[in-house]
């Protein structure tokens, strides 16, 4: 038997909407906990600090520069990906490397478009 299934989802961004809208345009919209000030990008819904659990459920949106440092990276058949420490964020983010042919430890967030807002970076070439 052969059966083909084609599915089209409509996804609601919910509390992540400002974050997702920012990604579409290449802006880093982080969440800052109103309880302890911890900044997360991608945002956490509940504040869980690494040393103790703040557990605050309220945060405000905070724009970051969108630049950061590649901590670890991997080149795969599906593209290149990195764990990135964005400037001003207290957590790290898994990002697609948009221009894997470029090298550099520093990178910047780039616009990924409204159809599929995703954390995408491009490395910043090191100055000679």
């Amino acid at each position: 038997m052969k059966l083909q299934l084609s599915l089209e989802y409509t996804l609601g961004g919910g509390h992540l909407r400002p974050f997702l809208e920012g990604l579409a345009k290449g802006n880093a919209c982080a969440a800052q906990c109103t309880g302890c000030g911890r900044v997360t990008f991608p945002p956490e819904r509940v504040c869980i600090t690494r040393k103790k659990q703040c557990q605050a459920q309220k945060s405000k949106w905070l724009p970051l520069s969108g630049q950061g440092e590649i901590v670890f990276s991997t080149r795969s058949m599906a593209g290149a990906f990195a764990l990135v420490q964005f400037d001003g964020a207290d957590n790290r983010a898994v990002c697609r490397i948009g221009n894997p042919e470029l090298t550099g430890v520093r990178a910047t967030l780039v616009a990924s478009g409204e159809e599929r807002p995703a954390m995408t970076i491009t490395p910043l070439e090191e100055p000679d």
Partner: peptide, 21 residues
């Protein structure tokens, strides 16, 4: 799926990043 998944990252790539660390 909403953050990491949207990048198109594969399971292997995530395991690879963990392995790098």
């Amino acid at each position: 799926a909403w953050t990491d998944g949207m990048t198109g990252v594969s399971a292997t790539a995530l395991y690879a990043l963990s392995a790098r660390s």
